[in-house]
Design a binder for these strands. Structure first.
Length: 271
DNA sequence: ACAACCGCCTGTCAGC
DNA sequence: TGCTGACAGGCGGTTG
């Protein structure tokens, strides 16, 4: 589910409300992707710091140390003063004196992992190898072009890999390539330097626009206050197989790359 | 170093 | 109605 915009929208929706809250209790449901790595009891009484984001991860400081959260494919966070009884897909809940932060994740690809610091394991290991943040000034055409050199996979897959730039998942990678007019099947190393500049800009713009729109709600994404996103209304290609391109009218095509669906306009997007 | 797969889970939807 | 298979917003691990 959640790509960078959804994670960022979630972060913004509860960061201020939870900052400074004192932990009363930690409740766990079924196991998530990895073990928590700390006893719930040991977190009681700690104060929540300023929630941060790195890529699609959230860092919830509970000095000394903190929790690294990932929403996986189907996870969402809710922060409420009074939470309803936990359901079968609620697998993590931090009860504080300001309210309850709860992770709901039907598929359980998500994770909540204790780490003594962001630059200590396991957080450091999970974050190692992540590319630049898309809104980092260092992320530009030159960085993207350099990152793509020597790579023979398709540009779409290289973008998705997240080691050059983080945050563009399946939806936004498709949308950014459309915006930049680049065929998703183009071999990564064959993207020219000028086109890399255009693609870097497109990635930034698409992600910024999606954050602005509150993220994409295809099925069930909601921010921590239950507000849905609306970027799906602006999607040009994602999920539009067979429908006319909004620019040229050519039917949008769906292909499979790396076992993921790619949507693109065969007329607007060139190799 | 890179690339192609696999698996983790559950829910939903299309087709028969 | 029920069954089956495809598919879903991510990503780490294994294999070649």
């Amino acid at each position: 589910m959640p790509e960078l915009p959804e994670v960022e929208v979630t972060r913004r929706s509860f960061a201020d409300a939870i900052a400074g809250a004192r932990v009363l209790e930690l409740r766990l449901g079924k196991p998530l992707r990895w073990p928590l790595g700390v006893t719930p009891q040991s977190l009681v009484g700690r104060r929540v710091g300023e929630v941060r984001r790195r890529g699609k991860y959230l860092w919830l400081p509970l000095e000394p140390g903190g929790l690294l959260l990932h929403l996986g494919m189907s996870g969402s966070l809710a922060f409420r003063e009074h939470a309803p009884p936990a359901g079968p897909h609620d697998h993590f809940e931090l009860l504080t004196d300001r309210g309850s932060l709860r992770l709901t994740d039907p598929r359980r690809f998500g994770a909540v992992v204790w780490s003594d610091a962001l630059d200590a394991d396991p957080a450091a290991k999970l974050l190692a190898g992540l590319g630049l943040e898309p809104f980092d000034a260092r992320f530009d055409g030159a960085h993207l072009h350099a990152g793509l050199s020597g790579r023979r996979v398709a540009i779409k897959q290289a973008l998705l890999a997240g080691d050059i730039v983080v945050g563009a998942g399946n939806i936004y990678a498709c949308e950014a390539l459309f915006r930049a007019g680049i065929d998703p099947r183009l071999q990564a190393q064959r993207l020219s330097r000028p086109r890399a500049g255009r693609l870097a800009l497109a990635v930034r713009e698409i992600l910024a626009q999606a954050v602005e729109a509150g993220g994409t709600t295809l099925r069930d994404f909601k921010d921590a206050h239950g507000v849905a996103g609306s970027f799906q209304m602006q999607a040009q290609v994602y999920g539009r197989e067979g429908e006319p391109c909004l620019v040229c009218g050519t039917p949008i095509r769906r292909i499979v790359q790396g076992q993921r669906s790619t949507y693109y306009c065969p007329s607007c997007q060139k190799r």
